[in-house]
Structure formats: structure tokens, C-alpha cells
Design a protein around this nucleic acid. Structure first.
Lengths: 253, 253
DNA sequence: TACAATTGTGTACTTTATACACAATTGTAA
DNA sequence: TTACAATTGTGTATAAAGTACACAATTGTA
């Protein structure tokens, strides 16, 4: 929990190092035990949840800023990131503006102005992430997509927009390489799609369709040791996967 | 052409009224005589072309800023606008930074810092636009998609990104209401798609597909007076059109 | 009045999507 | 040891969508 003095120092520092009235907010998606999850932060002493975010260094490319911010929250150096929208309502940061106005002397309050926020979504390997709170939060943890509480500021809107964007991406881009472990079974991959779409898919049709994309390699040996029939293991064909990422799936016109 | 003194005054004014290091750039698409066109500006005395753009008032929603900027360039009060990307390389405005650094005293030079640019694309009715230069330009005019010159700064990239986005939109959203006149023939609408995609489409298959979307109404009477067989006139069914805009066409999964 | 250009409509064929069924494997409970 | 439930692999019939192509109707012009 920051003291008032620390907060003032943070402001003084921020004024020097960051672009003002610009922020970045990230919706980090991870997949674990058949469930899509989002990384959330909780403020000290209050049940206020928000998305991981931060600011842009004065001479830093915005994509690099998003990477830096997420490295601090996840420990990951390389992250799949996709910019999806800028949120630019002048009152979107009003709650923050008011809160800090009460705490800080106006001339040193870096949070007094509106902030535009650039939204990024990230797809990460759940097992490689070490959720790490920032200086404003006491908790950083995963939440199931269906169990995201009301978020601070317009972060609920940002989250929803990210999810809508991701669902759209599903239609013309491969997904999974950044979310799944190296090897996985077909039912596991299907579960990924189902949890994103919040919808059951037909097992057999899913398999046919995803295989038709030509982005999967099947291992020789099926997974052993589990109950029930041993499923085959698949991995992404990285070359074809990348190709599909840039070219897209559907012809359309 | 602005004098140095005018430029300094502009800077002083801008510092007061606009958010600094944020700009908006717009790719305005119009359709005329079977050709998709973009609205471009040309600087005084030089063959330097760039996209219509501007800045965000201190307490203005960014979407409203884009609207205001385009009202000044086109005369249109209501414009179909879609935000598509933020361009945030710290050196993207370097050419401008350097240029103004040579012209203006540092302490009054509002253009000394980097600018992030929020990209919007607009779809407008060609006939309702009155192209109007801004204070930095002497010409504002339409250019065919295929005949866009190299643009200033990263505007060529912004233009290309807008066009790619538009082409993608074509696959899951209706298009045309904002670009076509009230009534139009099927071949005209097809030409719109062809000029956007830069690709010939089959006349009969196009018609079947576009009609299947259920967003068109056919008028009782065909257009008269032209050479050749009189074509039917169509108009958009606004209710269905709007529905398709929000819901999207393709199921996908 | 024949003709070129253009538009309206239809049909056969291929590909993709959807709905469903059955056989094989594996641990567990009887 | 065996029947059973759960799960996975594979196939097939049908519907829908996409693709390729043909012919007839209309209208101004040579």
C-alpha cells in the first residue's frame, strides 16, 4: 500500500518518464483445465478489481510498452500481443481523477488529467506465468472468463471488447499456439475453442475442420496412462501456423 | 501558407486547446464512377501528400474529434467512422519534429514531441463531400485507390492498414450504405466490391450472395433511359442492414 | 433490322458444413 | 474376470454454400 508521500514521488517520477494522458491496459488470456482465464489485479484493502496496465515511456514504442508492462505482471519476456482498441472517453478515468485529486496536491498530481487507454490483449501459456501484483495492488490472479467481477473505470468494457475481438479472430486466424502447451490432445484444443466461444462444439466436425486448416501435426504415439482410450497428441506446425496467421483462413470474397 | 509567426501562434493555441502528443489521422473512402477513392491533402509548394488529420480537444471524446476533423475536410456532419489502429512508433513523426525544430523556437514548438496517431477510416457518399484543404495544405482532393502517391510520415502505412481492415470487414459486415447513393443497380454495387478488393467477381454469383444477406430491397421499376437493358434499382433495407452490422454475417464456429 | 453491350435468370457441379452412429480402448466396479 | 461407463477415433448421409458456366431479354446504334 503506497503512502501519500510515495504516491507523490511516483507522480514526480512518472511526469519525467512517461507520456502523460496515455495509458495501456491489457487483457491477458490463459487456458487452464479446460477454462479460459483472465489475469486481474485487486487493490489494497478494497474489493476493486482492474486489468493489468501501465504507461508508455517517453521514447518507447507502444507495443514495447505493452510488453514491458506484461513482463512485470507475468514474468514472460515474449508475449503474443494484439492491439484492439483505444478507449478515449474524456470521463473514462474520472473515478481515478477524483480519487487522486482528494489525495494529492494539484500541482504534483500526475493523475489529474484524462487518460486515453490503448487496449491490448495477450495470449499466454498459463503455466509459464507468475502473476505479480503491481504497486497499486495486493493480488494478481487468474479468473475464469465467466467469473470476472465488475471492474474499475471502464475496464469491464475493455475486457468485453477484447473478448469480442478474440472471438472474431477465431473465424479467420489460427489460435492456440500461444495458449496451449507444446503437445495437446484434440479434445483439449476443442475445449479451448468452447471456453472462448462459451458454446459446445461437435467433436467430429471440430476435428475435421481444424485438421483441414493444416496447422497441426499428430505425434506417432498417443498419450498413455490416462483413464479411457488413449488420445493422440498434436502439436502446431509452426510454419503453416505462421502462414495462416498472416494470410487468414477464410476467402470470403 | 502559414508564416512563421502564424505557426507560432498556432502552437500557442494548440498547447492550450489540444491534448499533446496525440493525433488523429483519417482514411476517407468514397466511391465514384466505379472507382474507390481516398481523400488526400497536399502541402503548399511541395508535392507532399498526407491524410486528413488533426488533434483532440482537451475534453473531447476521440470519436468526436475524428468527426470534427472530417467535418472540416468534407462538410459532412455525420460520418461513418471506424477506429482501426494506433500508430505509436516514437520516430513516426520524426520528419515533422525535425522540420518544425528548424522553424520554431524550442520553447514554443508544440510539434517537438512524438505523436501517437489514432487511425480512423471513414466511408462517405462521394457526392456529398466538399473537399476542403486545412491550414497546412493547398489541395484537398480524391485519388483513386491505385494511384495514391507516397505519403508523408507513416501515412502510407496508415492508408494500407485501413484498406486491409476494410477488406477484412467485407467478409463479415455489410458495406455500401455509407458509400452508395440511395438507389443503385446491382452492377454498381458489384463494382464497389471489385474496386475495394481489386479483383473481378462473377456477376451472377455476386448477385445471389449479396441478395442472400437480405439487406437489399428491389424497387418496382427499373432505371430507364440508359443504353442497354434497363437494370433494376436497389436500396438498402436499413433495419436489416443495421442488424447485420452489429451481428455480422458469417457464423464461423 | 442486325448487332453489340448489358442485364436478368437458371443449372450442373464441387466444396464445405451439419447431424448423427458405431467401433475401439481403458480403468473400475461387480 | 468380466461387464460397464467414459472417452476417443473414424465414417457416412444430407443440407447448404460456393463455383463455373449458358442462355434469353432489352436497348441504343450502325
Amino acid at each position: 500500500m503506497l503512502t501519500k508521500q510515495e504516491l507523490i514521488e511516483y507522480c514526480d517520477d512518472a511526469r519525467e518518464t512517461y507520456l502523460d494522458h496515455i495509458s495501456i491496459d491489457c487483457v491477458v488470456f490463459g487456458f487452464h483445465e479446460g477454462q479460459m482465464k483472465v489475469l486481474l489485479l485487486k487493490t489494497h484493502n478494497e474489493e476493486k478489481w482492474y486489468l493489468p496496465g501501465g504507461f508508455v515511456l517517453k521514447r518507447e514504442p507502444i507495443e514495447m510498452a505493452a510488453n514491458r508492462i506484461l513482463k512485470e505482471r507475468t514474468g514472460l519476456a515474449e508475449i503474443f500481443l494484439e492491439q484492439f482498441h483505444v478507449f478515449g472517453d474524456p470521463d473514462r478515468s474520472k473515478v481515478h481523477n477524483d480519487m487522486y485529486a482528494d489525495m494529492l496536491p494539484p500541482e504534483r498530481n500526475w493523475f489529474s488529467s484524462r487518460f486515453l487507454s490503448i487496449g491490448y490483449y495477450a495470449l499466454v501459456d498459463f503455466f509459464e506465468v507468475t502473476p505479480t501484483p503491481d504497486r497499486f495492488s495486493e493480488i494478481c490472479e487468474w479468473r475464469d472468463l465467466g467469473e470476472v467481477p465488475e471492474l474499475q473505470l471502464d475496464h469491464s468494457l475493455i475486457f468485453k471488447t477484447a473478448l469480442d475481438t478474440l472471438r472474431l479472430q477465431l473465424n479467420y486466424q489460427p489460435i492456440g499456439y500461444n495458449l496451449m502447451p507444446k503437445e495437446f490432445t484434440m479434445p483439449e484444443l476443442q475445449k479451448l475453442y468452447e471456453t472462448i466461444l462459451d458454446k459446445k462444439l461437435d467433436r467430429r466436425n471440430f476435428q475435421r475442420r481444424i485438421l483441414a486448416f493444416g496447422i497441426l501435426n499428430r505425434a506417432e504415439e498417443p498419450r498413455k496412462g490416462g483413464a479411457h482410450k488413449a488420445p493422440y497428441l498434436y502439436s502446431f506446425d509452426l510454419e503453416n501456423y505462421r502462414h495462416a496467421l498472416t494470410m487468414g483462413f477464410k476467402g470470403g470474397w
